[in-house]
Design a protein around this nucleic acid. Structure first.
Length: 904
DNA sequence: ATCGTAACGTA
DNA sequence: CGTACGTTACGATG
């Protein structure tokens, strides 16, 4: 016996998982509905999803130590050369399946799972060869394949997992299972298949001979050779039929014999499972829009034991200090001047935060953990002094949240020199989340896992869940921070983003924390009145709508609306969507123009009022005890660099319609303040376009101070500015903005309700006058394609690997992102700079006025008594001076006691 | 309970 | 077949 294996115990025995990629992907394709699985770019993903889901289950349930996936290489194999009809009845590959196999390969590569294919051979031959080699090495082998030919190499060490229903249920085909199901030994299965045939491979069997007869013969004569020798002796119709098809059966047997000696570049030993490339997995899963599946996969891994299993990365070692003698003060003094990691457990919500426990750690893993509910006065003082000391450098992950938690206990947080969440966002702005545990695995190859104590009680109580475990967990996170910051700082430097963190995002985090804590005052009584009013409009519209169609339906259900509109009322079909035909507002308005059916009017009114009522309800629920709404500004969500607002979203409060604007009256100036002030950049994106493109015409347009769209319209249409009609102006406006989004002539024609040719002419005319814009837009995409990213005026990058994708939809999408990201992102940079300037200048002058909201190109402030004039000048100056562009940054200001009245 | 989808609000 | 977001209700899943 091979002595390498002599001491291998059964539990440590290597286990090789082999998957027939094409056959399982194809099964998954038919098991899952195509229309339920596709990305926003239209790429179908049902086969990918099914395949990866199955793979996840296999890894979880079977715990393979080695994995490989084999694919068919092409249409011609040594079998088709011998028998051209082989697999000839297969329908052409369905269109939605095409393109999914390369995506599966991308997933496998990100998981560092080998995939193999070889010219002229089928996946099954590769699997047979690897299986036989692995068996020879003493490995346990699992073969996952939907091709029954693979049953021939089942033995005591080799099990085939054969899909019985979809890809989620797999039958374990052991020798006994094969014997039970087919009545023959696994090695004789090809004999049986040769007699019975295989329709899906276009292999005709002996007519009248099914699996029962074939098995009977095989057991009676001992095998196919013997059956063929004794063919004359077999009586009856079946025997006759057999004699008429001897050649076919011989050929079948040749074809279904799998090769065990395919020459492969890799052997079983090379297939050992590797730690995942998590960064790449994020990229791939982001593109596939597999959220739940990604979570499932990542959730599986930390549970693995830390042996040599994939993903079992080492953890952090921490030593939690005993503060009973020297106290926190001594511990901190010993580390003066060093950057320390700070982790705060508690509620991280604005104006309602609370901190329960604090962990501080140095880069060596020495940590101090403080239970704030039970803190000696001297430690409380030391903690307070250290937290608010701007000269005591701290590293946090999501400092804004910690700021809120600490504020709940009246601690002031200052001296934050690094935020690992913000840093990671600047490096990879397309990620959705920046989980600290994910980052430590990716950058430090360590897990945030607290090692169970060796003497851990295995009884009813889990010791790790008591207070001490919480302290350990917090200490581990704090200890990870300093090390992580070092790596990320290097990453930031490489990407030219160090200043963005230090001079922009970090200080902005503090400004946002203050803004969120302030909140904005609400007139709750007025909101309740609005709610009642919109509620009445909803009821009235519903009643009238029901009367028109003679029954009550749920007007909020697109499904029921489709029945009413297209079945009951037999209206013309609207644009197709996944679930049928759209009932969106544009389509309903279109239908109304065609049919003038009164139901549509009531339905639209109902939609409007329902929406407004929902908005009002949501706002009412969000009013805090202080009578103000405290939104959270997300600083690491938008890939372009914008902020976003949640719980509630105050960046999408209605303004376009009069009814909607009424909601803005509920946002009011707070007690002790004079008024609200809004200040917004006018046409900032077009100004950035002018600056970035350097187009002389566009720059001149802004310098003249004339109305932009009229100016551009006069140049495009060749008429004096005074003769630019409203219709001309609105066309120009739509096109100008569209250009910054990568608008096509088709899209423009759709939006303006004009012919595609007219839209194309319009764009052509525009570019002939403003050629610099076209040059710029083409250049942006070309440069991004070659360097891999776009950049804003402050160097904020967005990476767009899909610019070189083979998939046209994905490539086109990436191109539009490339066009928009520098413009939207630069505007975001500029207003962020302005916010810092405003906040700083207000503080420098000792004003009471304060920032309350940011809505992308607008700031809302509360004006202290008597400060209106000074504040307006200050805000104008800071906003206009936030960037030095080749065009002026125009700011318009409004004042009023409500957001509505302060608007303009 | 959880998830994806449709719809719709903002810049 | 225009970018960037967040929230809600519905209805199909488990």
């Amino acid at each position: 016996m091979d002595d390498r294996l002599a001491d291998v115990t059964d539990t440590a025995r290597p286990r090789l998982l082999l998957i027939d990629g094409h056959s399982m992907a194809y099964r998954a394709f038919f098991a899952l509905p195509v229309d339920k699985f596709s990305t926003s770019t239209g790429q179908h993903t049902n086969a990918v999803h099914g395949f990866v889901s199955m793979l996840a289950n296999l890894i979880r349930d079977e715990r393979p130590t080695h994995v490989a996936v084999a694919f068919d290489a092409g249409s011609t194999t040594f079998r088709t050369e011998q028998f051209p009809q082989y697999k000839g009845t297969r329908d052409a590959t369905p269109e939605p399946f095409k393109g999914q196999v390369p995506l599966i390969k991308e997933v496998l590569e990100s998981m560092r799972i080998m995939h193999l294919e070889k010219d002229r051979f089928e996946a099954d031959d590769i699997l047979a060869t690897l299986s036989s080699q692995a068996d020879g090495l003493g490995m346990e082998v699992l073969v996952c394949s939907g091709d029954r030919d693979s049953l021939q190499f089942v033995n005591e060490n080799v099990t085939v997992l054969y899909p019985v229903k979809g890809v989620s249920e797999l039958a374990r085909m052991t020798p006994v299972a094969v014997q039970t199901k087919y009545g023959v030994e696994p090695g004789q299965y090809p004999d049986l298949a040769a007699l019975v045939g295989e329709t899906s491979d276009n292999i005709p069997g002996v007519p009248g001979v099914g699996p029962k007869t074939a098995a009977k013969w095989i057991n009676q004569f001992g095998g196919l050779e013997q059956i063929l020798e004794h063919a004359d002796e077999i009586t009856g119709k079946a025997g006759e039929s057999l004699r008429a098809h001897l050649e076919q059966v011989r050929l079948n047997r040749v074809l279904n014999h799998l090769l065990l000696d395919v020459d492969l570049p890799l052997g079983p030993d090379d297939l050992r499972a590797q730690p995942w490339d998590r960064e790449d997995m994020h990229r791939v899963f982001d593109a596939l829009e597999f959220r739940a599946l990604r979570e499932r996969l990542f959730a599986m891994m930390p549970a693995e034991d830390s042996g040599d299993e994939p993903g079992g990365a080492p953890t952090f070692e921490v030593a939690v200090a005993d503060l009973t003698t020297d106290g926190l003060s001594g511990w901190l003094t010993a580390r003066e001047g060093r950057s320390l990691g700070l982790e705060v457990a508690g509620k991280h919500t604005p104006a309602a935060g609370d901190a329960w426990m604090v962990a501080i750690a140095d880069d060596a893993g020495d940590a101090a953990v403080l239970d704030l509910a039970d803190l000696p006065a001297r430690d409380d003082e030391a903690l307070r002094a250290w937290l608010q000391d701007p000269a005591a450098p701290k590293v946090l992950h999501g400092a804004k949240g910690a700021w809120h938690a600490l504020a709940g206990r009246d601690y002031v947080l200052d001296g934050v020199v690094f935020d690992t969440e913000l840093a990671s966002y600047l490096c990879h702005p397309d990620q959705r989340t920046y989980d600290l545990g994910e980052l430590t695995i990716r950058h430090l190859h360590r897990e945030l896992r607290v090692e169970e104590p060796e003497t851990g009680d295995q009884g009813a109580f889990d010791l790790s869940l008591d207070g001490n475990g919480e302290a350990q967990r917090l200490a581990v996170r704090a200890a990870a921070l300093v090390q992580l910051a070092e790596v990320l700082a290097g990453d930031l430097r490489d990407r030219g983003a160090s200043d963005l963190l230090t001079d922009l995002e970090l200080p902005l985090g503090t400004v946002l924390a203050q803004i969120e804590r302030r909140g904005i005052a609400m007139d709750a009584d007025y909101l309740r009145e609005l709610e009642r009013h919109f509620g009445e409009v909803v009821s009235a519209a519903a009643t009238e709508a029901y009367a028109v169609i003679g029954r009550e339906v749920n007007l909020g259900s697109p499904k029921q609306l489709q029945e009413v509109l297209f079945d009951q009322l037999a209206m013309p079909k609207t644009k197709k969507i996944k679930t049928g035909f759209t009932t969106d507002a544009a389509a309903l308005a279109d239908l109304f123009a065609k049919t003038e059916h009164p139901f549509l009017e009531h339905l639209l009114a109902h939609r409007d009022a329902t929406r407004l009522r929902q908005t009002v309800e949501g706002l009412l629920k969000s009013v805090a005890e202080d009578g103000r709404i405290h939104t959270t500004f997300q600083q690491t969500i938008a890939a372009t660099g914008r902020l976003s607002s949640t719980e509630p979203n105050l960046q999408n409060i209605p303004i376009r319609t009069e009814a909607g604007r009424r909601i803005r009256r509920a946002f009011v100036v707070g007690d002790g303040y004079e008024t609200l002030l809004t200040a917004d950049y006018s046409q900032i994106e077009m100004r950035i376009m002018a600056h970035l493109s350097g187009d002389e015409g566009l720059i001149e347009a802004f310098r003249t101070g004339e109305d932009l769209h009229s100016y551009v319209g006069s140049r495009v249409f060749g008429v004096p500015t005074s003769e630019v009609t409203a219709a001309m102006r609105s066309k120009i406006k739509a096109m100008s903005y569209g250009l910054a989004y990568g608008l096509s002539p088709f899209g423009l024609s759709k939006q303006l309700n004009i012919e595609v040719s007219e839209a194309a002419t319009l764009m052509e005319d525009y570019f002939s006058r403003f050629g610099g814009v076209r040059t710029y837009l083409l250049g942006v995409v070309a440069e991004a394609r070659s360097i891999g990213y776009t950049a804003t005026i402050m160097g904020r990058r967005r990476y767009l690997p899909d610019l070189t994708s083979d998939n046209r939809q994905r490539r086109d999408m990436a191109e539009r992102m490339a066009l928009n990201a520098p413009i939207q992102g630069s505007a975001a940079d500029i207003i962020k700079v302005a916010m810092l300037g405003v906040e700083k200048e207000i503080a420098a002058r000792g004003l009471r006025s304060r920032l309350l909201l940011q809505v992308h190109d607008e700031l809302v402030l509360e004006v202290g008594p008597g400060e209106r004039t000074e504040l307006e000048a200050l805000v104008r100056e800071q906003m206009a001076g936030a960037a030095d562009l080749s065009v002026p940054l125009d700011v318009s200001v409004g004042v009023g006691t409500s957001w509505h009245d302060a608007g303009h």
